[in-house]
Design a protein around this nucleic acid. Structure first.
Lengths: 209, 209
DNA sequence: TCATCGACCATACCTTCGTGTGATGACATT
DNA sequence: AATGTCATCACACGAAGGTATGGTCGATGA
């Protein structure tokens, strides 16, 4: 299962060397992977499938942009695809910087085809895992968005483990009102038990960090 | 706060070049850090303060052992100290491997004193964070160890969000018995609310992974 | 053998939770 | 003016949770 690259995943190859990009493309296609090539970061950013499953294979020396800088910019641009960096003239500090920034791998050119295949496979797996947890988290955030302000206050205290009576005291409400907000919160969040709700609350907190 | 290295932290420098080790030592001491030097991994492993807060500065080319291999062995040996690697003859694949294995940094020699100070500071901070969460987790595991088998079964279903009645059904017990085990579990775990207990259960699961 | 501990259950009692009915007032939108 | 949402509360009832009393049974260990 870990070595089952999904056909629906797209490998975005960003390299100004067209020959290398095409070569890489066919290597990846030969193992059943979709590949798209771009000659610049600008061209890449115009692609319409940056939200689709996949990963990025990024050259460091690019016209205009630096690959390492671009890797860090991607976060701000909302592109969460795992990144593999490659370079013909890299050094250790560059690779360390890239890995610290979360790169999946850093391959000096020339590299063996198999090394790139392994890196891409790992990247796509990482993307799959990211997506799975992201999907869950987004669903929870969406539901949380439907809560009224008061409901959120109450749910916060509920997930902190307080009793309805305490919550009523802290918010200056009657216990009945707390129960109503609590019930509404559970329904809106789709929580079938308090344990459920606590875990959702923790997921929400993780996303804020 | 992030740049406040604790004096109680020990920087373990493992390098067969005594001059370099001593030089590093005095640099680190000059910024208020404790440093100890070792000429081999064997000597390092004989140290008695491997459980104390700190980090490891490890040379890759060492007599007998390879620094990268040793870094990976440390996990099996139960040494959780963050590792900084340094080398005079390293290449990119080495640095990538080290970073993948969780190294804090990878410095090619010669490096600037400040770079090492920064790396050590980051490593000690990481250690501090690790220790904080580790401490919490160990406390929970210890308390969990005092639960009887039945209590664990019940608590598992409780934290899964099931009602006492359901739990009684699944385990073939009366509801009262479930309540007793549940109460005992809460007391032994030191949970003041169900929310507390759910979070403890999740912490326990994280450690199994 | 006696003590201890884990597991089990009944009965009883109180607390907490969840929900429904019915109602009021504020505010925003249509 | 009418509609809708949010927020509030009283009263009431049944469900679920928590604890205590008191007792049985079997295994373990001093």
């Amino acid at each position: 299962m870990p070595n089952t690259p999904n056909e629906s995943s797209v490998v975005h190859i960003v390299d100004d060397d067209v020959d290398l990009g095409d070569g890489l493309s066919s290597v990846l296609r030969s193992v059943g992977l979709n590949a798209k090539t771009y000659r610049s970061t600008q061209e890449f950013l115009r692609a319409d499938d940056l939200d689709a499953p996949g990963c990025i294979v990024l050259d460091i020396r690019l016209p205009g942009t630096n690959g390492l800088d671009f890797q860090e910019e991607l976060v701000g641009l909302g592109v969460r695809l795992p990144v593999i960096l490659m370079t013909g003239h890299g050094d250790i500090p560059m690779s360390v910087r890239a890995m610290k920034a979360g790169a999946v791998d850093f391959l000096p050119k020339p590299f063996r085809d198999q090394d790139m295949i392994d890196a891409v496979t790992a990247a796509i797996n990482r993307d799959r895992l990211q997506r799975a947890s992201e999907q869950q988290a987004v669903a929870i955030v969406d539901r949380y968005a439907t809560l009224s302000p008061r409901e959120r206050e109450v749910m916060a205290l509920v997930t902190a483990g307080k009793m309805n009576k305490q919550i009523a005291g802290e918010l200056g409400l009657s216990e009945v009102t707390v129960k109503i907000h609590r019930g509404a919160g559970m329904r809106k969040m789709g929580a079938r038990s308090l344990a459920d709700l606590v875990r959702m609350a923790d997921t929400l907190k993780d996303r804020t960090r």
